[in-house]
Design a protein around this nucleic acid. Structure first.
Lengths: 231, 231
DNA sequence: GTCTATAGTCGGATAGAC
DNA sequence: GTCTATCCGACTATAGAC
């Protein structure tokens, strides 16, 4: 008797909100790889091991489930990013750090982005949905924009402004930040191209390490930070 | 009487392969914005102003039409990129240019990429399909990989190798080229994020100019080329 | 070659038993 | 709360008239 069927045998006690969780989980997997229209409610419920009608019952429909997935992503990425973002914002409000300190913070944020886009096991699914939402935005875009993308960009703009002596609100600053972020995003959206070109099978930790090292160097160059040298 | 209906009135003479063209055109528009499953053959034929059965007749089905779109993109981007790529490759085969000359060629290729991803009216549709194909590759991916992506990356790797003194085939070189390209790709895949953050309505020529200027500066910095100065 | 009509399938949502 | 059975609309593809 499998553990799953053992638990499924008990009606109320063990799994009160289990169906919700299972559905969101399955939906994250499927919507991460396929488009909204490319996933059927039948596949969804089947993969979640729940009944077809459960989607209606818990989320009001396929669309509601999709929004729940967006909120899930927001919360997962948020739990990684928000502490770091809050710390940086508070620091910048309190004082004016040196260029070196600012650069250090940029590196911290880059680390967070590498984690959320390349290293976390679910990252592929997250970014799949993030990218799709940018190409054909749905109501879910607002959740992700307000919760994840905008705060990260805002924080990086403040730091970049300080480092380069630019107004954080200036168009140039914001564009520079996008270009900076693009270097990382590339390795996600062009995953197939990258792995095929390099003969990789995916992003294992050694491959992520190679990417990380080069991105750090690049960010240093783009922000005009000289290499540290031992005196 | 509109020109369209005037032409449609004549059966054979004016438009022998017109239906094909109209279908590919409509398909490019629709597949550029929506996923494969998100576009119905009804919408397709309706938007093309042809009959539903024409998709079967000319392309053997929805999938065949999609592949025709991929070949169309390959040919359109190819006509912009291949002459430049061939010239660079031939040049590199014939002699070993200086770093400055190599950098000049990189700039030329960057120009081509900006044209194909931001400036050409159809670019939004092209890149939409390119990105989708990377996230869930279909048989169309091979067409686009062999025809467009791989040659561009290969050419940039040779140049980057020469400029930075690296083996063009080395993993590091290839990763650096991806990072380089990512800066540009960002402005396409995150179009919604970029325009919303900057309060733009789209990429008009003045906005593309701002992006181009910064990208050129960045590429210079990433390749370690010093600013030219008047003596 | 072009179109209409339709077959056959699969989609999301619902009603109602338990 | 959970499940089965079912509705009904939309889909791709095809047959056959013109």
């Amino acid at each position: 008797m499998s553990p799953a069927s053992a638990r499924a045998g008990l009606k109320q006690p063990s799994a009160p909100e289990d169906a919700r969780k299972r559905l969101v989980d399955a939906a994250l997997n499927l919507f991460g790889r396929n488009s909204f229209e490319g996933v059927s409610t039948r596949t969804l419920s089947q993969q979640a091991g729940v009944n077809l009608a459960a989607i209606q019952y818990y989320f009001g429909g396929k669309e509601g489930l999709y929004l729940a997935v967006a909120r899930h992503i927001d919360s997962r990425i948020g739990s990684l990013a928000r502490p770091v973002l809050a710390k940086v914002e508070a620091d910048l409000d309190a004082r004016t750090p040196t260029r070196e300190e600012c650069f250090e913070m940029v590196c911290n944020l880059l680390e967070v982005m590498i984690k959320t886009t390349l290293e976390t096991p679910d990252s592929k699914k997250w970014v799949g949905i993030l990218v799709r939402e940018q190409m054909e935005p749905s109501p879910a875009f607002d959740i992700l924009y307000e919760g994840v993308m905008s705060p990260m960009h805002h924080c990086l703009s403040r730091l970049t402004g300080l480092i380069l002596g630019l107004d954080p609100e200036a168009e140039e600053t914001k564009i520079r930040v996008f270009a900076l972020m693009g270097q990382l995003i590339m390795f996600h959206v062009s995953r197939t191209l990258v792995t095929r070109t390099l003969g990789w099978e995916g992003y294992r930790s050694s491959e992520v390490e190679s990417i990380r090292a080069i991105l750090l160097e690049n960010v240093r160059a783009l922000l005009g930070m000289e290499e540290k040298r031992a005196t």
